[in-house]
Design a protein around this nucleic acid. Structure first.
Lengths: 177, 177
DNA sequence: CGTTGGTATTCTAGTGCTAGAATACCTGCA
DNA sequence: TGCAGGTATTCTAGCACTAGAATACCAACG
């Protein structure tokens, strides 16, 4: 059973610990998961319902209890599916959407100066993201292995982008504003 | 008027040269644009229709001619919108979907050996993509500025990923298959 | 002049997702 | 007892996108 990245994320969190939708929302926020997935608030319940329909998570009936608090547990198939899909996401390096490249491909449409200005703006944004990642890493220490790997990878790629941008952004500096 | 990356791509190509849907399909293929955007065959006409509805492209009425060959031209607003959106895509470094990180975040679900195996598989895929980019660069030379920038950026990021993967994939090599 | 095969577009019927409002529940406190 | 405010979920309606089939055009060729 093939899952999307968003489904895998939610399922993985439920496998880690049974929880309900609202919790999930908080955890996703707290861990900075939105830095690398696009999971809106409104889609969490939608995803949970879909996963439930496929038998990957379930809500055990609690006899005379909380009606308005559906705690989702992973089923054995859910566990298995989460592991398999996570591995697949690691193993497969498909083409990735790169908005920057869409911009660059249209280089002919604007001036060199505009281009460099845009690069400088992006550079600042990338530097801010690097700082944010570092800060998150520091403040949450000691970190479990998975979180450390996530930080390591994020930083490597952001750093590579930073360098590329820095080299391009300051080729000429004959403008001061 | 804010456009999506896919819309910007298609509009940018039409600005560059008036053409019809089928052409677009070929150009997108030939330039390897699918390496960094997700534009399926069936969505090209859909996108063109949407752009037409917003007055960014139009099909000049050719009196007594080709009924089944709608050649799209960019309008002045289209030109302007393409340039503005391309710049915005360069300037903004938002969170990007990283399927790999979804996998890594679930590191607890599988064994170290499985993890390393997945990394090795990905490493091979990334190396193949680097080779493909190099090959495309070589075969198409001499390249316009935009294409050179695209290649440069792609290679930088892929290379950074390659290094990260290589470092992780071979920490232990006590397995031979 | 009919047929074949590449060129070019349109249509249909969905899926997947999302925003945002609406609803319900629960706890503490006056 | 009532109600304020955070907690938790559901609903509605709609947009964006896609696969894949269907259609139409057109040139070349026997």
């Amino acid at each position: 059973m093939r899952l999307t990245p968003a489904e895998t994320t939610v399922l993985g969190l439920v496998v880690e610990r049974p929880q309900h939708g609202y919790d999930l929302e908080q955890v996703i926020d707290r861990r900075g998961i939105r830095q690398w997935t696009e999971i809106g608030f409104s889609s969490i319940y939608y995803l949970l319902t879909k996963l439930e329909g496929r038998g990957l998570v379930h809500v055990p009936e609690v006899p005379a209890a909380a009606k308005s608090r559906r705690v989702f547990h992973a089923t054995p198939e859910g566990r298995e599916a989460a592991a398999r899909n996570a591995l697949a996401l690691i193993a497969e390096a498909g083409p990735a959407p790169q908005p920057l490249l869409v911009g660059i491909a249209n280089l002919g449409l604007f001036s060199e100066e505009e281009y460099r200005q845009a690069l400088r703006t992006r550079l600042a944004a990338v530097e801010a993201r690097i700082a944010a990642v570092r800060e998150a890493q520091r403040s949450q220490a000691p970190l479990p292995m998975a979180a450390r790997e996530v930080f390591s990878y994020s930083t490597s790629l952001l750093e590579a982008e930073r360098q590329w941008l820095a080299a391009r952004a300051q080729v000429t500096d004959d403008d001061q504003d």
